[in-house]
């Protein structure tokens, strides 16, 4: 396995860029490895950023950033450095969260993800904002998204269970994820 999971030391950027390229080419395992590698950094980033406004679940922010990375992954130009892109997405979403919480204000400086040490353990979240939002999706999207994300079924199993083609499940899942992002923007949990 590449150095992507190494806590610190040499910059993992090259390894991450490599995983991202593989992911963009359709390699789900590499893509997952990348998201798992960056999640601890994003967590640290979110915790740090939220200290000033308090009272928001950092894990929700982490998931929101991950979702934005996922939905906007085609905007990374593969011949460009990966970290500035990652930082920009993380900052953008953190600012977004702060605005929603009614604070504007400065957001941590660029490159923070670079500087920070690693990995607090992931806190358990019971009913995150995201889970509540899934319940607001339309019929088929909700079924598909909750089957895959909440119950942890594969696309293949979900397709078999619902009697849909894998392609149709993929499309519904993808649309569901996009819709989730829209619901987030529209004001989170109501």
């Amino acid at each position: 396995m590449p150095a992507a999971n190494k806590p610190d030391g040499a910059s993992p950027e090259m390894a991450w860029a490599e995983l991202m390229r593989a992911g963009l080419a359709g390699d789900a395992a590499a893509y997952r490895q990348l998201l798992e590698a960056i999640a601890p950094r994003l967590r640290k980033f979110a915790v740090h950023g939220l200290m000033r406004i308090g009272n928001a679940d950092a894990e929700d922010v982490v998931q929101e950033i991950l979702l934005a990375i996922h939905l906007k992954r085609q905007t990374w130009m593969q011949d460009q450095p990966f970290l500035p892109w990652l930082n920009a997405i993380a900052r953008h979403k953190l600012i977004d969260v702060m605005r929603r919480k009614g604070r504007r204000g400065e957001v941590p400086i660029e490159g923070l993800i670079d500087v920070l040490p690693d990995t607090p353990p992931e806190p358990e979240t019971s009913q995150s904002e995201l889970t509540k939002l899934v319940s607001r999706l339309d019929g088929k999207q909700q079924t598909v998204v909750s089957s895959i994300s909440l119950d942890g079924n594969s696309i293949k199993d979900t397709a078999a269970q619902l009697g849909m083609s894998e392609g149709a499940v993929r499309v519904a899942f993808h649309r569901g994820l996009k819709k989730l992002a829209e619901l987030y923007r529209a004001g989170g949990t109501a």
Partner: peptide
Amino acid sequence: MKTDDFIAALSADAPQQQTPPR
């Protein structure tokens, strides 16, 4: 939802991708 599960869900969607902006 645990972030690990969320990541698993996202990577299931890996091949589907939007048109690059350019």
